[in-house]
């Protein structure tokens, strides 16, 4: 629930020839899930760390809810921004409960309130409080550590979450489960999330919008659907692997391609999908039911439709790239 704006933000580390972040401008609406995507060394981590002032830009301004972040006391700013890093960064000498309690304690909450919050958060990330509260990080699996890291970041109820490759060191199955859960948490808690990744599928799967970076610059900031269908340049096209249809269909969500409900739309039995389901699944439902249009259904009501044409548009657009020049 926090809006973030970057205005011509640059950062050049001392003694380095090129800026790590180069004149980046963009704004993230409150409640959006934004994935920062790009190859190694392009400046993703640096960009993220500027938001909670672990590094300060050499030029430009960053605003949180319209206010320059330098106007907040730095510790207060950080206490209201959740921060999750790879390998979780849990404090090894503190139990799970103590780790989660760090920010509430800094905020001066009362003991009972902290205890209740710890249990609530453990439930939220699907760890039984009774079983895990008193464990040390070394007694947890990598996936469990990341869950605790997430719970710890959420403890002070921040409006904004910064996540730096949180699932980078985790096996594919656990990772996919954690991705599902972060999506659930995002729907449930409506936090603004900035999530760094260099995994295209992860980005396509999670993001409302993807911020593609290259050599410190923002090359495109758009929805997954538009990135695939209208890449700004050959770099984006290649990065997203825009040629692999099947892969895209399996990572893109129905809601990214659906259209408004026409007034004469009739709901056909069985031809219904959820907005979070993949286009690949939608395609198989379309083929199986033979329906002209699928109804996208959420919380007991129709919110959109999806036809074969909508999916085909994706393929056709890819065959004719939107940018000029040679690939």
């Amino acid at each position: 629930m926090s809006k973030i704006e970057f205005e011509r933000v640059s950062l050049r580390f001392p003694h380095s020839l090129h800026p790590a972040v180069d004149s980046c401008s963009f704004s993230v609406e409150s409640g959006q899930f934004v994935v920062i995507l790009g190859p190694s060394g392009c400046g993703k981590t640096t960009l993220l760390k500027m938001v909670n002032r672990l590094v300060d830009p050499t030029q430009g301004q960053i605003r949180l809810e319209g206010k320059d972040i330098h106007q907040f006391p730095v510790t207060a700013l950080r206490q209201r921004i959740g921060y999750v890093i790879q390998q979780s960064g849990l404090f090894p000498h503190m139990t799970v409960a103590q780790n989660i309690a760090v920010v509430p304690r800094l905020l001066g909450w009362r003991k009972e309130r902290i205890r209740a919050r710890v249990d609530e958060l453990l439930e939220l990330v699907n760890l039984s409080p009774h079983e895990y509260r008193h464990r040390y990080p070394a007694q947890l699996s990598g996936g469990q550590q990341q869950r605790v890291g997430l719970a710890r970041a959420l403890a002070g109820d921040p409006g904004l979450l910064l996540m730096d490759e949180p699932f980078g060191a985790i096996d594919a199955i656990t990772r996919s489960k954690l991705q599902e859960e972060i999506l659930r948490l995002h729907r449930q808690l409506k936090k603004t999330i900035l999530f760094v990744s260099h995994d295209v599928e992860e980005a396509l799967r999670l993001a409302d919008r993807i911020l593609v970076m290259h050599k410190g610059q923002v090359v495109q900031f758009d929805t997954p659907f538009r990135l695939l269908t209208q890449p700004a340049n050959p770099f984006v096209r290649e990065l997203l692997g825009a040629d692999d249809m099947v892969r895209q269909l399996s990572v893109l969500r129905v809601e990214t391609a659906m259209a408004k409900i026409p007034h004469n739309h009739k709901i056909q039995e069985g031809a219904v999908v959820k907005p979070q389901e993949s286009l690949r699944r939608a395609l198989s439902v379309l083929l199986r039911t033979g329906a002209a249009a699928l109804t996208v259904w959420e919380d007991g009501r129709a919110i959109g439709i999806l036809t074969l044409d909508h999916i085909r548009d994706l393929a056709v657009l890819e065959a004719t790239p939107a940018y000029e020049g040679s690939a």
Binding site: K49, N52, L54, V74, T75, A76, L77, R78, Q79, Y83, I85, Q86, Q87, G89, L90, F91, P92, V102, V103, L106, R152, L162
Partner: peptide, 15 residues
């Protein structure tokens, strides 16, 4: 002490 741990401490707003 792993740098990641100290960075987490800083990032969470410890002085």
């Amino acid at each position: 002490i792993q740098p990641a741990i100290l960075e987490a401490a800083r990032g969470m707003g410890m002085n």
